[in-house]
């Protein structure tokens, strides 16, 4: 179980203070698939970085199964928007890397890496370099590398945001399948309403200025969910409800309050 209590994060930007996230209280059960939806600048990426332990909250605490998060850890695997694969290593060596870090001998690591690549449908591309892969394939490889850490929580930061519409839907369905076969908890950031609904058990809607949670919304679509679920009439209802929320949320004057670059 993941618990956020009064979590806030402020940045100093020159003379003024940017309130990226203010006072977020949230409880996420083990095995849940939670999507976080919001416009840019709402602090959703900052929130994810705090869960990952890459940034520390200015106020409040993040706990996982009662343990306060103080830094990054293999229990929480991060997948970034652009895959951040190591371009100097082959795909298979990329996936094997977290295993080698853990002291798994090279040969055994390569075998496990092959199994992981098969799981994400990249079994034929182990010897390729990341530069040779399409965007979708790179995200599959990055996912395999993260899974190699055997995390209990997957933190995904708009992982399909840069993909074309068709590839994105295929990736969503594969992620669904992978998650349904596992006992992973997934926290998935997106600014795409349909993606948030299709993937999530819950949609956490965030607003800007300051970044905060404006709604915690339950998605009642059936599990296990497959491509069929996209035709469920309830999706239209959900969409218009979420559209309404986002449209009425005040817009950020400066935007991008949550970007790290």
């Amino acid at each position: 179980m993941i618990e956020l209590k009064g979590v806030a994060k402020t940045f100093q930007r020159g003379d003024h203070v940017v309130r990226a996230v203010t006072s977020v209280d949230l409880t996420i059960e083990g095995g849940e698939f939670v999507t976080v939806l919001g416009p840019s600048g709402c602090g959703k990426t900052t929130l994810l970085h705090m869960l990952g332990g890459f940034e520390t909250p200015t106020k409040g605490t993040v706990t996982i199964d009662g343990q306060v998060v103080t830094g990054p850890g293999r229990d929480r695997g991060m997948v970034f928007q652009d895959a951040t694969l190591f371009p100097w290593r082959t795909v298979s060596a990329n996936v094997a890397w977290p295993l080698e870090v853990n002291g798994v001998p090279k040969r055994a690591a390569r075998l496990q890496s092959a199994a992981l690549l098969e799981k994400v449908g990249l079994e034929k591309f182990g010897n390729a370099f990341p530069g040779e892969l399409s965007g979708g394939m790179r995200q599959r490889a990055a996912l395999a590398r993260t899974l190699a850490m055997e995390p209990s929580v997957l933190l995904m930061d708009e992982p399909f945001g840069a993909l074309d519409a068709q590839t994105r839907e295929i990736m969503q369905e594969e992620l669904m399948r992978l998650w349904q076969e596992s006992d992973l908890t997934v926290i998935f950031i997106t600014h795409d309403i349909s993606e948030a609904i299709f993937l999530g058990d819950r949609v956490i809607v965030m607003g800007v200025s300051p970044g905060r949670v404006i709604e915690d919304f339950k998605v009642e679509l059936d599990r296990p969910r497959t491509a069929e679920a996209r035709n469920d009439p309830r999706i239209l209802e959900y969409r218009s409800h979420l559209w309404g929320l986002l449209a009425h949320a005040p817009s950020s004057p400066s935007g991008n309050g949550s970007q790290i670059t």
Binding site: P72, R74, R76, F80, T84, F86, V101, N102
Partner: peptide, 22 residues
């Protein structure tokens, strides 16, 4: 890209390994 370094920290790699391998 600082996130390259984060990938290493996420995997629990020691500083020396992050230095030489990333």
């Amino acid at each position: 890209d600082p996130r390259m370094i984060w990938v290493g920290q996420n995997a629990g790699a020691a500083r020396v390994r992050i230095f030489f391998q990333i």
